[in-house]
């Protein structure tokens, strides 16, 4: 039960304390936040989230950002976020030190359809920082190995320096029934992995299209290419899921910013099946 959830105003950020900041790449950091006044005796934590959900992170006096939760859904005593520093608010956020407070609202949005994925192969396709909202899926599958079929992780980044969670990628590859393939758009001569966009990895995977569910997250145009190729490989549109992104101010469905055709990304998404997105994805300036 979410014992305290009812008393929390979804409009007001709760101060969480920064427990750890890990530099992943030159501009991307992973923050671990700890909720205030944990009630360990009760064993009740508010941090229950579905893989794929996001929070609104508020930096005191600076601004608020929608950030996907990238941690382990089983670890209820903390929330983990992977943030790319691209503006003032994200820059301030990643500059936090241990013990600093960050405002947290959420979690918000729909998660990846883990229920539907049970008994099936899970194909995770990530581009760039898009691996962050998919990492909880990977944790969930690896913790509950018997519930799911094969786990395939296809990951594309700009360059070898931009690959997130490199040690975990190696560790995941050693798990049973798990295939991990990474590729970069631009490889240096010291890079001995794959070079090419993420879609070039499909040929190394023996997909069982009728018993697979594919989850893709990355730049929208990358997801368009990915979804198209998955369909060519025999996956039905309703078995392909995408994590969408739009400007967001409230995450509650009433600031209006995240509208995408008839959908509000914040409350109807951010996870949508490809058959729902397909009519909209190719509309310029929708």
């Amino acid at each position: 039960m979410m014992a305290t959830a009812a008393t929390v105003d979804p409009m007001l950020p709760q101060p969480y304390s920064v427990r750890q900041v890990v530099k992943e790449t030159s501009d991307t950091f992973t923050l671990t936040l700890e909720p205030p006044a944990l009630e360990p005796s009760s064993g009740v934590y508010r941090n229950r989230f579905q893989p794929g959900q996001f929070s609104m992170l508020w930096v005191f006096g600076v601004g608020e950002l929608p950030i996907s939760i990238s941690g382990d859904p089983a670890a209820r005593d903390r929330l983990v976020y992977t943030v790319r520093s691209v503006g003032q608010a994200t820059q301030t956020l990643v500059s936090c030190e241990v013990g600093d407070a960050v405002g947290v609202r959420g979690p918000f949005g729909t998660g990846w359809p883990m229920q539907q994925a049970q008994g099936r192969d899970v194909i995770v396709i990530a581009g760039g920082i898009g691996l962050a909202p998919l990492r909880p899926v990977i944790y969930e599958v690896l913790h509950n190995r018997e519930k799911y079929g094969r786990l395939v992780i296809l990951y594309g980044a700009r360059s070898p320096h931009d690959l997130l969670y490199r040690r975990e990628l190696t560790a995941w590859a050693r798990q049973r029934e798990t295939q991990v393939l990474a590729t970069v758009d631009y490889g240096g001569l010291n890079w001995h992995g794959n070079v090419g966009v993420v879609t070039t990895l499909f040929k190394y995977v023996r997909l069982q299209p009728t018993r697979s569910l594919a989850f893709a997250c990355g730049p929208e145009i990358m997801m368009r290419f990915v979804a198209r190729d998955l369909e060519t490989n025999g996956l039905a549109r309703e078995n392909i899921y995408l994590s969408m992104e739009r400007n967001m101010k409230c995450a509650l469905g009433f600031c209006g910013h995240c509208q995408y055709g008839p959908h509000f990304i914040c409350k109807d998404g951010p996870i949508f099946s490809y058959d729902r997105m397909r009519p909209l994805l190719e509309k310029y300036e929708l």
Partner: peptide, 18 residues
Amino acid sequence: EQRLEATRLQLLDVYAVG
């Protein structure tokens, strides 16, 4: 066709910022 498609996507440099 597949390699041209991949090259186009690569050309878009989709992970770049700004």
